[in-house]
Design a protein around this nucleic acid. Structure first.
Length: 489
RNA sequence: GGUCGGUUUGCCGAGUGGCUAGGCGCUGGUCUGCAAAACCAGUUACAGCGGUUCGAAUCCGCUACCGACCUCCA
């Protein structure tokens, strides 16, 4: 299968032609959220980026197994392997079971993803459900000589690993530099070196979530889950691994080390990283407290928001920038996307009303080629969208009969917009934004007031016509002495 | 401090050597009983300095500024 899909590989720092190891099958893994808070704009970008990739690969005919994990244990608060578990802390603060916290925010995450048109992954594994697999990997790493146990905790020996392997090759770091820049932790560390990271941590009494193991009652290190779960579901070497750029170091670097040490194989063939969303030029992040959650965007309930925005507007806003560029949030920028998206959808609506003419002149094939080329060039959605706007101008000109199209080109145009706007970009058609039933309610009330007015001026022809027409629609009118009532029966 | 990336027209944002990206805004126009909407057209910028080249936003060097990672973060 020759598709010429170019993707930027963080490992080589250049675009490469994508060739899966076992076509037509593709294994795709993307790091999902740690579910201890509401999803924000940054989570949306990560999810939409890899949703887009999933859709593109499927469009190109690949059979994709897309694994996106949920981190529900092992992700510590701060300072290398010394802090409190994020979810455990939230549970303690709110007096909930950790799994209640997980369930609540996982449900919220799923709801947000559905709203954004993000397809469900093929498999969505959770760290807490793969403790055995993670322990097995720890054992493998110890057996290979790259892990050591201290007081019931197990750490990865980065110095040992660096003798034969390049720790830091993904993020472009050298262990010497890392060592020179490591802060001296005040606390006495069990680790041989500050660069070493936890594979298994012995749980203190404050840790609610803990599991038995041959080393101690404890919990897995954060980096471990992605290594173990990706290997379980996608094999020891996977085609594409993605995530946010902020995970590059240390998370992905550690994943590589764990896999190479444990399985003796290179972990990932293509690494892909989406860039951050900024706000006032600064990264939007939980730790900086400058984030806007997706629910806040959808409701407008945030002091920085001038109005609410539809989920599809957010999706379009994100897709209007390339996934490897930073994207700056502002009310004006999203409002611009909102209007632009409306114009795009409007053109698609118009497209279905256009009639073909034998003497057509439009060239839809060129449009299609451009869209396909942009898509295959490292998912260049902004370029693809600009091409779709060239088509919008074409559609409007057809609508106003300034130019004509034959039936072949008309059909191709329809196919282009269905394929690229709906299937690939995942921008589902606009809804009115209000519930249909609310509008129906108001509409019937309005029509009946017109009928009432007709009756009052004794225009019974009109009033009877309205009554009969509504009755045929199933609306039963109940005239009363002082007005009217109705129901849909 | 180390590593990496960025600086594009009023705003957002593509673009790796010659050919107007695009969206929003703005200006003009078409349509319209009025208004709105819609549509069309115009709007030619690439941080600064130097270099390579017939030709640079695009390649090289220096300077300035901004950011990410180096501790949790999509």
């Amino acid at each position: 299968m020759k598709n010429n899909l170019q993707i930027y590989n963080t490992l080589s720092r250049k675009k490469e032609t994508f060739e899966p190891s076992n076509p037509p099958f593709v294994g795709l893994y993307a790091c999902g959220p740690t579910v201890y808070g509401d999803a924000h704009l940054g989570h949306a970008r990560q999810a939409i980026t890899f949703d887009l990739l999933y859709r593109v690969l499927s469009h190109l005919g690949y059979k994709v197994r897309y694994v996106r994990n949920i981190t529900d244990v092992g992700h510590l608060e701060n300072d290398a392997d010394e802090g409190e578990d994020k979810i455990g802390k939230k549970a303690r603060l709110e007096q909930l079971e950790p799994m209640e916290v997980v369930q609540r925010f996982m449900n919220a995450y799923h709801k947000n993803m559905r709203e954004l048109g993000v397809l469900s992954p093929s498999i969505e594994p959770r760290a807490s459900g793969h403790i055995i697999e993670q322990q097995e990997l720890v054992t493998k790493i110890i057996d290979a000589g790259y892990g050591y146990e201290v007081n019931g905790s197990v750490y990865f020996d980065v110095a040992k690993y660096s003798e034969k392997h390049a720790y830091g090759k993904l993020s472009g770091r050298k262990t010497d530099d890392l060592l020179a820049n490591t802060r001296n932790l005040k606390t006495q560390s069990e680790k041989k070196s500050p660069l070493d990271f936890a594979l298994w941590k012995k749980a203190g009494p404050e840790h609610i979530m803990q599991w038995p193991s041959e080393w101690s009652k404890g919990f897995p290190g954060w980096h471990l889950e992605c290594s173990a779960m990706s290997a379980k579901y996608l094999g020891e070497t996977i085609d594409i691994h993605g995530g946010g750029m902020d995970l590059l170091f240390p998370h992905h670097e550690c994943e590589i080390a764990q896999n190479v040490a444990g399985y003796g194989k290179e972990k990932v063939r293509y690494w892909m990283h989406n860039n951050m969303i900024t706000i006032n030029g600064q990264k939007m992040g939980r730790s900086l407290g400058n984030f806007i959650t997706l629910d806040q965007l959808f409701t407008g309930d945030h002091q920085l928001l001038k109005k609410s925005f539809d989920p599809m507007t957010i999706r379009f806003f994100i897709l209007q920038a390339h996934y490897r560029s930073t994207l700056d949030f502002s009310n004006d920028a999203i409002a611009a996307s909102e209007k632009g998206l409306h114009r795009l959808h409007n053109a698609i609506r118009i497209l279905n009303k256009i009639e073909a003419d034998k003497n057509g002149v439009v060239n839809a094939a060129e449009l299609q080629e451009k869209c396909e080329a942009a898509m295959k060039d490292d998912l260049n959605t902004p370029l693809m969208i600009s091409t779709l706007y060239d088509g919008v101008r074409m559609i409007n000109s057809l609508h106003e009969k300034r130019i004509k199209t034959d039936v072949e080109n008309l059909d191709l145009l329809k196919k282009i917009y269905t394929t690229y706007v709906y299937d690939i970009l995942g921008l589902t058609p606009e809804s009115s934004g209000r519930s249909d039933s609310a509008i129906t309610e108001q509409l019937i009330g309005y029509v009946l007031r017109l009928r009432q007015a007709a009756k009052e001026r004794k225009d019974y022809e009109t009033s009877d016509q309205i009554r009969d027409t509504l009755q045929k629609m199933g609306v039963v009118i109940k005239d009363r002495k002082d007005g009217f009532d109705w129901e849909i029966g």
